[in-house]
Simulated scan of single mutants.
Amino acid sequence: MKLALIGLGNAGGKIVDELLRHEAELSRSVVESAVAINTARVDLARLEQLPSESRFLVGQTHERVKGHGAGGDPDLGASVIRSDQAEIDRALDRVPPYAVDAFWVVAGLGGGTGSGGAPVVAEQVAARYDPPVYGLGVLPSESEGGRAALNAARSLRSFADAADNLVLFDNAAWQANDDSLEAGYARANREVSTRIVRLLSAGTVDGSTLAENAMDASDINRTLSSGGVSTIAYAETADPSAGGRGLLSRLAGNGDADTDDGADPATVVSGLIREAVNSRLTCPAAVDTAERALIVLSGPPSSLSRKGLEAGRRWVESEIESAEVLAGDDPRENADVLSAVVLLSTVTDVPRVEALQAQAVDAKETIAEQASLRESATNDLITDDDDQLDPV
């Protein structure tokens, strides 16, 4: 699948940057075009993979922005994106629509530019181009506060409506207690990049061995065509055909599986698919509420058991109680790991979203109450006790 990536805001730009880095490390060919759009000049300057001509600063002439960001205000972020249409058009002009299978708009939903701008850009791209427009939305953790939760809950409704499908990544599910803030975000970006690149590189003609059970862009688009929100599962193990033991989790619960030496290849493959679905998803959800699923098995050709893949597909069918499960392989001659990525499309039971909405409602009430108290306190401060002084 060939993608046009559009990163909105700080988190969106960093994830696009990491996707490009991961694609290069794995010698994959997924990204046809990539741009980053932001209201903050300093955030764009921190990107390492995207060339300068693919970075677009919006809101430079806006009296409240002037290149310094939207200040966590999604309404301001959306307003700037709408008003700076010339710069958005310039960014989109770099995308060759005839060469891409889908657009992917990427944003963190807790800030201002990403949460406000991503739904607007998704709408603009959908109105301008024929390929489907998908979203990748990063949910803030509870520790990021009520304002971030409120931004995310508001953006989530608009983003899901504007995109053909919205894949969620929950920062809260991927935090480690010993992570610094920077290290935690960097690790989360690597995790989501691993899943996206391995999922979407299936069926791409890039010099690798041709798949026996080929997946292509139409399979991925079909799986995502049911709309709503989706999540991605992943697991990997050392190449069984090389005689290595399975990898225990390098990071607790990160989707690494453990396999025994000499295990039957079909058993290894089917077990790996189960391990993926039963480990942490990009956003935790009730698996049995998914409407569709797609499985991509990637690794050395000698380890890709067709029998195991079919067994894994049947197991996923039984788990989600749907016949809409596609499965394919992605042979990689030089790979040293066997991996399984499972896209679970249109899930309807996502506890983190419900918790986020509850936190957002509380935050909205608190913010309104605090604003009222501040107004009253300020009025008391500047008014004399008997209100005998007239203002100038």
Rank of each mutant, 00 (worst) to 15 (best):
G110R: 00
V100D: 07
D219W: 02
L8M: 15
D258A: 13
E87F: 00
A257D: 11
E365A: 13
L294V: 07
A176L: 15
V42P: 01
S193T: 03
E310S: 10
P284K: 00
P240H: 03
P300R: 12
V229M: 15
R41P: 00
V325L: 01
G77Q: 03
L248A: 12
L26Y: 09
Y98H: 10
G116M: 02
S115P: 06
R28T: 12
F159A: 02
V341H: 07
A40D: 15
L139G: 05
G13V: 02
Q175T: 10
S305D: 09
L109F: 04
A99K: 15
S339C: 10
P132C: 08
E212I: 14
G69T: 10
A327L: 09
A188C: 13
S208D: 14
A363N: 09
V120S: 03
D178P: 02
R28E: 14
G112T: 01
D43W: 00
Q359N: 14
A99N: 14
L47H: 06
E191W: 05
W174H: 11
D164M: 03
D219L: 06
E319D: 10
V229R: 15
N171C: 04
G69H: 08
L19H: 00
I15M: 03
A86S: 13
V392A: 12
G146W: 04
S180W: 06
A340Y: 07
V58P: 02
E333D: 15
R274S: 11
E142S: 11
L20I: 09
T61Y: 13
D329M: 09
A266N: 11
L389G: 00
G137N: 11
D219N: 12
L57S: 04
G71H: 06
E365V: 08
T209R: 11
V138K: 03
P331Y: 06
A257P: 00
L168K: 10
I273Y: 08
P240R: 02
G299S: 11
V100N: 07
L166Y: 10
D101F: 05
I220W: 11
A152L: 04
G253Y: 10
Q359W: 10
S141Q: 05
K14I: 02
S180F: 05
V347T: 08
G71T: 08
T61P: 02
A360K: 07
G184Y: 02
V341R: 04
A118H: 05
M215W: 05
G146P: 03
S318Y: 05
V138T: 07
Q85K: 12
R314V: 07
A45E: 13
R332N: 07
T282V: 07
S249E: 15
S372Q: 14
Q175C: 00
G243C: 03
S83A: 15
D329S: 08
S54C: 11
S241T: 14
N213D: 13
A202E: 00
M1E: 02
V58Y: 00
A40P: 01
G114V: 01
L210F: 08
G135T: 04
D380A: 14
E212H: 14
V138I: 15
T223E: 09
E182Q: 14
L338N: 12
L47W: 01
L294D: 03
P74Q: 01
D216S: 13
V296I: 04
L200E: 02
G69R: 05
A293G: 06
S226H: 11
G244L: 09
A127S: 14
A4Q: 03
A355N: 12
L20N: 04
